[in-house]
Amino acid sequence: MTKVNYGTIFKNGIFGENPVFRLALSLCPAVAVTSGVKNGFLMGVAVVFVMTMVNATVSLIRNFIHPKVRIPSYMFIIATWVTVTDLVMSAYSRQVYKEMGLYIMLIVAFAIVLSRAEVFASKNKFWPSVADGFAMGLGFLLALVLIGIFREFLGKGSLWGHAILDSKPLLIMILPTGGFFAMGLLMGMLNWIDRKFFGGTGSSGGAH
């Protein structure tokens, strides 16, 4: 096996295969929680943790999982880690749990977590899988924060809960409809930048 290039893994996770803007995975949660920067950020942190742990676990037992039942196995591993995260947080960090408790359980259904387990962790060794989970989570976090900035500023005239403008320029932006607008516009802009300056082909694919 060739030497693993961790730089490439990180670049892929954050730019080349950014979960939201390039792979277009997990758009439901990306719309649901990005009405504010803070919500997006907290959700991102939880996703980084869960993705790292799931990729690590799947990679460790990848030879034990029977290929015919790999999806149920992955789902169970994901559900286990999400539940563990939820339980530990609810007991030991009540303050953070009050902010994030709403989102933790949602992570079970994230397409991006399952897809990285299937695409990467099931075929790679332990440390590259951990790096991939972390990088993908980070890419997701950055995407959520970016959409969050866009929506919170336009929808509420504030950032991270601090008011910047006196008015609410576009209330629709914090409603789910506005989430799709924001995501579409940002995705289009990033594709344009990619084509114009890096000679890329833009994003493809799509799932919820």
Binding site: I61, S73, L87
Partner: peptide, 22 residues
Amino acid sequence: ISLVVIFIAAGVIMGMVYKTTS
């Protein structure tokens, strides 16, 4: 066997975490 082992292991982990955190 593959499924049962994974499910039991996950169940044990969750049960243990629940027991310590609750």
